[in-house]
Design a protein around this nucleic acid. Structure first.
Lengths: 146, 146
DNA sequence: ATATACTCTACTAACATAATAGAGATTATC
DNA sequence: GATAATCTCTATTATGTTAGTAGAGTATAT
């Protein structure tokens, strides 16, 4: 698994929305500014996240983005997989992968599987409620921020 | 961490050399054929592995490649890191990474660190002697193969 | 000598990443 | 109903990485 800029930006944005869950919608502009993300890039990312059901939007004045689900119901793993793909270190299961002509006899497969497993255990056990709580305790100012 | 074709090929090749450790040198041609790797691509990979001290070569007739160290002294992690780079899922420590303006307040960092740790524990605890043994037990024919 | 093998540098096609650009659609408010 | 603020959507582009390919050169056992 590799987290790209896009993934990094998506996670930071969802965390921002989780920290401010219950508030008025956050505009792309503000989300971009707070996390230092190029506005036009974040536009696209938010559209993706919206189509996937992570966030919802409101148009027009007083518009912006909100989480579509409660922070406690969005895991880190879900978002990572949606943006950056499977956690497997190598896609030798995939039909497209030409490098594996000997699935049964491959001693590496069980190792890659073990790595996927341990990674999944970590990212699937963390929700954005957890992350928002940690974030608030690192910087209590966030709790009152509009 | 993502294993590329290059990494996959390097691991398979070193495993092949480990399984046949003590034999006469294996030619690029044979190594490539046995693992279904493009010959010219494997040439480059083996030169890299040689420069890094994993393998040694002999030129001319009866030439080929041998492991430069005992299989028990080469870990999976060493080879993976050499070919495919660090195991960290995101290089937010790196100076080049522009996405992190808030190292101290980032709740994700400890998570990425945890993932690197668990991955490292797996790949650094496995040597090519282990892998060769597993490989032989999966396909006993390999033990006697020239 | 010669065949067999490794050595080295350069080049390239395809794809992924990280944006940027610009026109369009919706809505609160005056 | 005009306007400003905001989201929506498609296209384009620059850069880097990956996965090779090409070809000329060097060493050595026989």
């Amino acid at each position: 698994m590799r987290i790209t800029y896009k993934g990094d930006y998506a996670l930071k944005t969802i965390l921002d929305l989780a920290v401010h869950y219950g508030d008025t919608p956050a505009t792309i502009h503000n989300l971009a500014r707070r996390a230092d993300i190029p506005v036009k890039f974040l536009e696209q990312i938010l559209l993706d996240l919206k189509r996937a059901g992570f966030v919802q939007s409101r148009r027009g004045k007083v518009g912006g983005y909100l989480l579509a689900r409660r922070p406690s119901e969005i895991t880190l793993g879900e978002v990572v997989r949606f943006i950056d793909g499977p956690v497997e270190p190598i896609i030798c299961v995939d039909k497209k992968y030409k490098g594996c002509n000997d699935m049964a006899g491959c001693v590496f497969r069980s190792i890659w599987h073990k790595i996927s497993d341990s990674t999944s255990k970590i990212i699937d056990g963390i929700t954005f409620e957890d992350l928002a709580r940690r974030s608030r305790s690192l910087d209590p100012a966030l709790t009152y921020q509009i």
